[in-house]
Design a protein around this nucleic acid. Structure first.
Length: 272
RNA sequence: GUUUCUCCCAGUC
């Protein structure tokens, strides 16, 4: 079943979740048995699609198969339920796991942090440390991202500065979260600091970081710098164009906006 | 040769 697994995980990696699920169904028709490599990808696709019904169906099949214990599969199950908003089911599964790693804890914490249920999120955060689990940069990003989602921009930024103090590694996700928070509250001073960090860490050409930088400068009213970053971007995808155009419209620069829109069309990018 | 956690980056008056 390896070629099937390669195909399914490839679809998932490229965000083609529906194709991943239909391939999984074809696999059953072809009579090929899924294994513990197949399910994590399939469950991830269910979660990303918020397809709880099919996720539960996959869960039933795993259970019926009597598949042996697999941390990867169980982590993927917890994550699927979390992504589908089925927190209670996720938590029950999580509590019954005979073994957990940092991924299990992070997945469960996301469930609460993304909904602003901070008491429970921090309870798990403390418990994971008491249980001797490591805390990694994903853990921090999860909590910072939860603050961002809940509109607590200062809280997100506070957390990131704590990460620096704790010398936790900042990755591109940390930086995008920080930049998004700065954009929302117009905190250009800190935004520039993060920009500096991005350059030092060689993240400033990362697509997401670059787009977040353009947005940050545009929302902080520095359109010159935003445009410079736009022009010097290695790749200009749909979001890059949208970031820059909305930067202009936000500040009532409709001439520049429509000019850029024409350039976008001319370069063959389909507007959405 | 294949697997799970944060990657939300625009917009949503």
């Amino acid at each position: 079943g390896v070629p099937w697994n390669v195909l399914i995980s490839g679809y998932v990696r490229h965000g083609c979740f529906c194709n991943a699920l239909s391939t999984f169904k074809q696999m059953a028709v072809a009579g090929v048995e899924p294994d513990h490599y197949t399910y994590p990808s399939v469950l991830k696709a269910c979660g990303e699609e918020s397809n709880l019904d099919f996720g539960k169906e996959v869960h039933r099949r795993i259970f019926a198969k009597g598949l042996g214990w697999s941390l990867f599969v169980h982590n993927a199950l917890v994550s699927m339920y979390v992504k589908c908003g089925a927190i209670t089911e996720a938590r029950e599964l999580f509590e019954r796991m005979p073994e957990r790693d940092v991924v299990s804890w992070n997945a469960m914490i996301l469930g609460y942090a993304s909904r602003g249920l901070w008491e429970e999120a921090f309870y798990l955060f403390e418990r994971m440390q008491m249980n001797g689990s490591e805390v990694n940069y994903v853990t921090w990003n999860t909590i910072a991202g939860g603050n961002l989602q809940m509109g607590n921009y200062a809280g997100a930024l506070e957390l990131i500065s704590q990460m620096k103090v704790a010398s936790a590694s900042l990755d591109s996700a940390t930086l995008t979260i920080g930049l998004a928070a700065c954009s929302r509250i117009g905190f250009i001073k800190l935004g520039k600091e993060i920009h500096g960090t991005a350059i030092r860490c060689l993240y400033d050409q990362d697509e997401r970081v670059r787009n977040a930088l353009i947005t940050m400068y545009a929302r902080c009213k520095d359109l010159r710098l935003a445009y410079f970053l736009f022009q010097t971007a290695e790749t200009q995808n749909l979001v890059t164009w949208n970031c820059m155009i909305s930067g202009y419209t936000r500040l009532d620069q409709y001439g520049n906006a429509s000019f850029l829109f024409k350039r976008m069309i001319f370069s063959g990018i389909e507007p959405n």
